[in-house]
Nucleic acid binder design. Structure first.
Lengths: 114, 114
DNA sequence: TTATCATATAATTAATTGCTTATATACGCA
DNA sequence: TGCGTATATAAGCAATTAATTATATGATAA
């Protein structure tokens, strides 16, 4: 057991949040790249409110943070969050999702938000 | 990323399963001790069907296995499961739940199932 | 200022979850 | 064999979740 053992309640809450393919993939992507909402809409082929609501859940527990850049709001992993070490180990065992961002770049969708 | 990267779908399924305090605690306990159903009923102060249903979910994805010993059915972590390395890292970050078994021993409930 | 784009929020609904109650199965013992 | 204990399963129900549609907010650009 690590020094920074989490409480079971909190661990379960975090795992439940990550127990959704969309949110899990979001967090995996955000671990290496900031993204704006419209990029996620493209990546997941989901509606804007649906993406927004997923992001809100992640934000509510402090896993991600938002930052407005002009017209866009960019999300990033909150690496100072107390749970970050916990999820980091978990994310390290997942395959990179960079190819999803590559696809966006190829179709030119990512550039518009930069 | 480790060599044995999991698919995102499967990771999400596992995390969702573990995103429940009862199941997460069960798995944490089973990582170090086999347990029978009646012990879990005591530990979680839950109904027998409720415990049984949680165990079934864990069994359905192969995370745990059962073994009859006389009148009792003992559950254990299936450490040959392809997902075990994934959850092991996760479990290592959680506080030991051994005190729950200690409590059972003190009240004599654990012995009866031995 | 007004139109437009990006995003958030609210309300509604459908699907999923976890519990309860009731019943079935399987073992051990008299 | 029949009874008690341990467990599983099924059916029903309440709570939660995730999506949709509709609307609000906030920034930019004409």
């Amino acid at each position: 057991m690590l020094k920074t053992a989490m409480e079971m309640d909190k661990a379960a809450i975090i795992l439940k949040l990550l127990g959704d393919k969309t949110r899990l993939t979001m967090v995996k992507i955000l671990d290496t790249h900031d993204c704006c909402v419209c990029e996620f809409v493209e990546i997941f082929k989901a509606s804007q409110p649906s993406i927004s609501q997923h992001l809100r859940k992640l934000r509510d527990v402090g896993l991600v943070k938002e930052e407005r850049r002009g017209q866009w709001i960019f999300y990033s992993l909150n690496k100072t969050n107390e749970y970050y070490p916990f999820i980091q180990q978990l994310l390290n065992q997942l395959p990179s999702q960079d190819y999803k961002l590559k696809e966006l770049e190829e179709q030119g969708t990512r550039i518009t938000c930069g």
